[in-house]
């Protein structure tokens, strides 16, 4: 990403040829920073290595701390703190379901926690990336959010609660899966409906047409064009164009 004084910032995103925003200040700034945030970001090209050296250990330490098996007491206090952070919002998010915002499921640990974290993370969209889930994004925001998912699951929050927590602060935008109620339900209903509709059209077409010549459906002879001279001449032409010898038996 370069920025020059003239209000032109171009961002190079992780997976695309280039992104240029040269207009509104708002967009420019906000998203300029997004791209910055995903990794150790430093100002000048010549200092980038030292910058990454400063930030990389921080990142590594965070990861290391995560990777190390925490002591039981530490884990307990971690889950207390996550409940403290999350419960208020959750109680508001879906008062019917979450009541007091306390965990509604069993605390998870070990392989079950790993597995569930991966599964839930794949359903939460990374807000700073473009389209990938927090499970797939290497950006530090996504890593933070994934850690939050993990902590919530470890404290006994259910998958549904975790998702509602993120939806509460980010909106439905954060769900990789569109909601199944309200207007977005269209996206779930339309494809099966289209399939059904298409199938009906095909059936209608077949019935409509087969009424005329149908009769000897018992006759299994695959004589395709025997009863239709026009089709026979068409077929002969198609085959000639294709360099085929006179029609084969099959």
């Amino acid at each position: 990403m370069r920025a020059d004084g003239a209000g032109h910032v171009s961002i190079r995103v992780q997976a695309g040829p280039s992104l240029n925003f040269s207009d509104e200040r708002r967009r420019r700034t906000n998203w300029a920073c997004l791209a910055w945030r995903s990794t150790a970001a430093v100002r000048h090209p010549d200092t980038y290595v030292s910058g990454s050296k400063i930030l990389a250990p921080v990142f590594v330490l965070i990861l290391l701390a995560l990777a190390l098996p925490p002591r039981a007491s530490a884990r307990a206090s971690a889950s207390q703190s996550i409940i403290h952070t999350v419960s208020g919002a959750l109680a508001h998010a879906d008062p019917e379901d979450q009541r007091d915002g306390l965990p509604a499921g069993q605390p998870l640990s070990g392989a079950a926690l790993d597995q569930k974290t991966t599964q839930v993370a794949s359903q939460v969209r990374c807000p700073v990336c473009q389209g990938s889930s927090i499970g797939d994004s290497p950006s530090s925001t996504a890593q933070d959010m994934k850690r939050e998912v993990r902590q919530m699951l470890a404290a006994g929050y259910t998958e549904r609660q975790v998702i509602s927590y993120f939806v509460y602060s980010y909106g439905d935008f954060i769900r990789e899966k569109p909601p199944e109620h309200g207007f977005p339900a269209v996206v779930w209903i339309a494809p099966p409906l289209l399939l059904l509709l298409g199938a009906l059209v095909v059936v209608f077409w077949l019935r409509n047409k087969s009424r005329a010549p149908a009769a000897e459906e018992t006759a299994p002879a695959p004589a395709v064009a025997a009863d239709d001279p026009e089709l026979a001449s068409w077929l002969a032409k198609v085959r000639a164009l294709d360099g085929e010898k006179p029609p084969k038996g099959s």
């Binding site: 700034t29 906000n30 998203w31 920073c33 997004l34 945030r37 965070i62 952070t85 999350v86 919002a89 807000p127 700073v128 925001t141 933070d144 959010m145 850690r147 939050e148 993120f166 602060s169 980010y170 909106g171 954060i174």
Partner: peptide, 16 residues
Amino acid sequence: KGGHAAIAYGVAGVPE
């Protein structure tokens, strides 16, 4: 640390 508050506020970029 760890972005708890940022996540709780739905921060998607800085500044916000």
